[in-house]
Design a protein around this nucleic acid. Structure first.
Ligand code: FES
Ligand code: FES
Lengths: 146, 146
DNA sequence: ACATATCCGAGTAAAATTGTCAATTTTATA
DNA sequence: TATAAAATTGACAATTTTACTCGGATATGT
C-alpha cells in the first residue's frame, strides 16, 4: 500500500502555496524547481486542483496559483480526494450495497477500521498544520547547528 | 491508496485457515471456492506465505495448508509484510538516511503519522480478532432473521 | 510586441497488477 | 500397487496504472 506521486506531489505543491499564502501567486515553474518535480506533470495536477476549486489561477506574466481558501481550511483529505480519489482500502467498503456476501464477510470490519483511521488523519490535518510542522522543524534544526 | 488483491485475498485465505485451526488441513481448492478467488492465483500467494513460515503445507491427497502458529499469534501485519511488502506511504520515510532534504522536508511528518496509524492497526489485529468479528456478525445476523 | 504563464488534450514507455497454465513431485487411500 | 488428490515451481500474458512528455492555444503584465 503506497501513495502515488499524484498525492505526494500534490501535497508538496499545495504546501508551497500555503507558505506564500497572502503574497504573490506562485508559478508551476517555481514549485517544480523547489520541490524537484516535473513541470509538465505538475500542470496536470494543478488542472485538477483548480477544477476542484482548491486553487485559483492567475494567467499571464507574473501569474501563477494561489490557494482558494486559507491553509487552515484545506485538509489533506481535500487534496487526496482530488488527486488520488477517495481512499478505497477494499471494495468491501465502497460497494457494500450490491454485495451479497456482506452479512458473511469476515474481513469487512478490518478494512473499515483501517480506512477510518486513515481518513481521520487526512480529515483532521490541514495545510496549516503541515506549515507549522515545517516551521518547528526549521527552529530545531537551526538550534542544533549553532 | 488501495490495497492490492494480494493482501486482501491473503487475509481472506488465512481467515479460512484460522476457522479450521486445529482440524484437518484446508486445500487451495476449498479456499478458492469459499472465497471466490482464482485457484491458480492462490497458489502463488500460498507459496509466499509458506516460505515466510506463516503456514505449513501437507502434500498429497487429503493435504492442504494449516497455520504455523495459533490465530492469536498471527497479525495482519505479518500477512501484509509477506504479500504486499511493508507499508510505504512515501519514500520520505524509508529512504530517510540518504535524503539530503530530510531537514527541510515539510511533509515527512505527515507521511509518518499516516504510516504509523496504519501499522498500529495491522500490528495489533490478529487473525483471531477477525474470527471473533466474524462470529459476532453471525450472531447478530441470526438474531435479526428470527 | 513580447516574455511569461496558464490551459488543454493527446500520446507513450515502463511498471505493476492480476491472473493463467503446464509440468513435476508428494502422499493418502482404495 | 495404481490412482487420484494436492502441493511446488517457473514461466508467461493481458490489462491497467503510473508517471510522465509534448505541442499548441490562450491570456496578460510590462
Ligand atoms: S462485503 Fe462483499 S466480500 Fe466483503
Ligand atoms: S525526506 Fe526526502 S523529500 Fe521528504
Amino acid at each position: 500500500m503506497k501513495l502515488s506521486t499524484r498525492g505526494r506531489y500534490g501535497v508538496k505543491a499545495m504546501f508551497e502555496l500555503a507558505l506564500h499564502h497572502g503574497g504573490t501567486p506562485v508559478s508551476i515553474k517555481e514549485i517544480a524547481e523547489r520541490q524537484n518535480i516535473s513541470e509538465y506533470y505538475l500542470e496536470q495536477l494543478f488542472s485538477n486542483l483548480r477544477k476542484a476549486g482548491l486553487v485559483k489561477s492567475i494567467r499571464g506574466a507574473q501569474g501563477g496559483y494561489v490557494l482558494s481558501r486559507p491553509p487552515e481550511e484545506i485538509t489533506i483529505a481535500d487534496i487526496f480526494n482530488v488527486l488520488e480519489g477517495p481512499i478505497e482500502v477494499s471494495d468491501c467498503i465502497t460497494q457494500e450495497m450490491n454485495c451479497s456476501r456482506i452479512n458473511y464477510c469476515a474481513t469487512r470490519l478490518l478494512w473499515l477500521k483501517i480506512s477510518n483511521s486513515i481518513n481521520d488523519i487526512l480529515n483532521s490535518t490541514t495545510l496549516q498544520d503541515v506549515v507549522n510542522d515545517y516551521n518547528n522543524l526549521q527552529e530545531k534544526t537551526k538550534g542544533k547547528e549553532e
